[in-house]
Design a protein around this nucleic acid. Sequence first.
RNA 1: CGGGAUGUAGCUCAGUCCGGUUAGAGUACGUGUCUGGGGGACACGGGGUCGCGAGUUCGAAUCUCGCCAUCCCGACCA
Length: 491
Amino acid sequence: MAKEITSRQENYSQWYNDIVNKADLAENSPVRGCMVIKPHGYSIWEKMQGVLDRMFKDTGHTNAYFPLFIPKSFFSKEASHVEGFAKECAVVTHYRLTTDEDGKEIIVDKNARLDEELIVRPTSETIIWHTYKGWIQSYRDLPILVNQWANIVRWEMRTRLFLRTAEFLWQEGHTAHATKEEALEETRRMIDVYADFAENWMAMPVLKGTKTDAERFAGAIQTYTIEALMQDGKALQSGTSHFLGQNFAKAFDVKFTDQSGTLDYVWATSWGVSTRLMGALIMAHSDDNGLVVPPKLAPTQVVIVPIYKKDAQLDEISAKAHEIKDQLQQKGITVKYDDRDTQTPGWKFSEYEMKGVPLRLAIGPRDIQNATLEIARRDTLEKEIISQEGVADHIEQLLADIQKGIYEKALRFREENTYYVDDYEEFKQIMSEKGGFVWAHWDGTEETELKIKEETKATIRLVPVEENPEPGKCIYSGKPSKQRVVFARAY
RNA sequence: CGGGAUGUAGCUCAGUCCGGUUAGAGUACGUGUCUGGGGGACACGGGGUCGCGAGUUCGAAUCUCGCCAUCCCGACCA
């Protein structure tokens, strides 16, 4: 097989790009930083959406939709929120085009300037809290548990497909509560949902914890995060859940009357995951042969490829293939029988390997004769000849094995790349040479955090939530530390 | 916005320094034959405002000037 994909060792970034390209996930668009998500990439995203949506519904949430455009004035209301996003907002200033004097070029009509400029949403807290003001009067109106699936725009300088794009797809939950405790509980519940999704569906182990002041979401009191370790030793923030306190309620004057008749501001949360999860999925499992998709998120779990010379053989093979396909579908397994005669079997093998289809069956004349099948696992690249007898049960088991196997492989990788370090020189060495998660003591100051970032490019990915934290001395300043925090270089 | 580079076939690029037939290769695409258990072989074929605009010249992908676009490195970030 011709090597179409750069190896991870040779050039990790190029490997990532090659996977996105060769697995037909996405491509760049004429607008810098924006991407076209291709059918195969979108199919995986749809699977993720489906599972997450179910999880949100199961935890009591309902979907709604809020507008893409936000009046500029809304952004002046929550100061730290504005500061956080001001530098990456796309702004709509005009509403009409016209032709220039020569009538040749399309230009913006200067006479069609908007009275109030509109911000393309970088996130929807402001428009949503403006709206919630009208929805909330009494404790009887609470809680509000709303989610929306939407696209948002953050004008990023350096972009990479899925990992950081100017426009991306995501979901954002926005909830309103009568008490602080309830909002905090919601914040933690949703980070648990994300962790559950990451581990049990994406087969990607994650660390859970809170963000430091410096890394926190603009406008939040507390941010919970899940962080995964990618194969190059860099961390990827994969989902966040924010406790917003009463910040947005105060900014948008959202008050409610509680049972005792007292007027108080509403408590808020917001939480989201994005198409960045696609990037996480790619870098968590894929190898030098292409994408590896966990069976539970694979749009096609099993592909059947016929191998034949004469049409008469194909008829017989197709009959058997359809029989197996039916058996698998009855078990809820998604199957594709690829009997196109426009591509050779070898071509198809490579294609599905690069696209990460978990299992591949090949049926040829030999198999018809011997009542066998060739089955190939994408995760281990193992091939074996199996009997047609009981194939559906066998495949069902294999899919479960693959799901488990790739999780364990990712977990092993994380464990092998996790260090407990008490010496700053060693810390620096690990960060520059191999990366990974480093658990180290920190004195809790932003000053120290910043110095470490400057000197090592590593940031505090999270502060673990631990029942009995182990105190120690800050790795940088030597000052007292309450507990170890997790450092890594990050995407 | 600073520093570096590049624009030639759908894609990746050679040709540019040193101007000179009809502008090339690989790949992709089309047709046919042989093939078919890991991106098959051969034959034939289609496809180009050489980024745009001026200039120099008998002659410009190649030299000069201007413009445009893109990519990479830095500051920002889910």
